[in-house]
Design a protein around this nucleic acid. Structure first.
Lengths: 233, 233
DNA sequence: CAATATAAAATCCTATAGGATATGGGATTG
DNA sequence: CAATCCCATATCCTATAGGATTTTATATTG
């Protein structure tokens, strides 16, 4: 157990009081594997070898198996008995279409609800999330997309939070939408037209205009889908 | 490793060929714990003790921790570092409302899609699922509800399957809707008015009438929600 | 009696070990 | 040369062990 595992993060508060509770090894291993999946260090469909992780992360098999079990439960990893674990496969075109169908059913409705629930505090938080995305960070293009993708996810998540249905928010998060999209686009040049669409969405949310917010979200998702489709060619 | 774990089930086919692949211990443990959660043998919110399961299931800690990790990933179990695992809490009224909001966004649309996709084979499978539910099995009332709830779940799931969006189907299944509802009602007398609503739904589906199927599903879900609400009093 | 302190027991968490199974490389055969 | 076989190695899977932490029971104090 050494430096390969992220440092203990004592800012994780336990739910029963005010004393920070250190992260477990299994928890840290989960995060490390998740990061490797996200950055395609473990490519889609490839084997995840427990013994390799033991060597790489310098921990025993036990927390690794537990973390992989959790990732299995989340659908990010697939397990076959006696063969082991592998990364869930790359999202297929079919799956992508289904995902956007789900998003189109849930997110416009949530945008409308968020518009109705909008107030100054929430709007300011939302603007902060949107503002982060507009900022052009330095560094290479992939890092910029990485940042953009993470902040795009935060922006959408903030709208879901304001909409007020935690279960729907979690259901969407569970699909790891942004995870899949990020991996899909990881090797691509990407255009950031989303920013204009976000502005239109923000304006509707700011105005507390439910139907307009719903329309803006629908348009944004349809364009987002269409922008991503070439990745399947 | 003894009789407490379900017998090896060689009817699990591996994806790469035709030779049955036995279930892993971790897999069997997962199923055993899931069953205990479902039947409230492990009540909502209570501690799940690894060492107790070791004794009860007569397997070592390793597959138990892995199975619990998977259940954690599925949200059915909560883990706190150094304290251990516990069953996810009973669904709250808030959560229940959110769940029905999700269902009302997704299932009527799916019913409409299923109506459009309907053919004789699918209809026959759906009727079989509905027919099972109408049958009054013997045994005590709770067993009858248990059977009803399982078959209700299968009926709804069959509609989702016919609708053709596997991701939405999985997203709804991931919420373990019927699991939660089942647990909620486990100690209650229940009325089986759902059957009439199912008949109306079936008629619309049979007729290939998308809008009617959507309406019938919406009505059914609203009534289902209202029937279940007293459980929170 | 209630509150506090202490000790014992239970449990959590992880490392290690070892048998079973799968995989990959080299040798052999046709 | 391709196909098959055999063996060594790697990996999977689970059991066991032991130190750390939490929980529970008991003793002590005011």
């Amino acid at each position: 157990m050494q430096q390969k595992i992220p440092a203990v993060t004592p800012d994780t508060f336990d739910t029963s009081g005010f004393i920070p509770r250190a992260n477990s090894l299994a928890g840290s291993v989960y995060e490390a594997i998740f990061a490797q999946l996200m950055t395609l260090k473990i490519p889609p469909g490839t084997r995840i070898t427990v013994d390799n992780l033991v060597r790489e992360l310098n921990v025993s098999q036990t927390p690794i198996r537990e973390a992989l079990g959790r990732l299995e439960g989340e659908g990010l990893v697939v397990k076959t008995h006696l063969i082991g674990f592998s990364a869930a496969p790359q999202i297929t075109r079919r799956r992508f279409d289904e995902l956007y169908q789900l998003r189109l059913l849930l997110e416009p409705d949530s945008a409308a609800r968020a518009a109705i629930a909008m107030d100054d505090v929430k709007l300011s938080a939302l603007r902060a999330a949107a503002g982060l995305m507009g900022r052009r960070e330095g560094g290479d293009e992939r890092l910029r997309y990485s940042t953009f993708a993470r902040q795009d996810a935060m922006f959408h998540d903030k709208i879901l939070e304001i909409a007020g249905n935690e279960l729907i928010r979690e259901a969407l998060n569970h699909q790891h939408t942004h995870f899949h999209i990020f991996r899909l686009m990881f090797h691509s040049r990407v255009t950031e037209e989303a920013l204009d669409e976000h502005e239109a969405l923000l304006a509707a949310l700011e105005a507390g205009d439910g139907p307009a917010a719903e329309r803006a979200m629908r348009v944004h998702l349809e364009h987002s889908r269409d922008r991503l489709l070439p990745a399947f060619d």
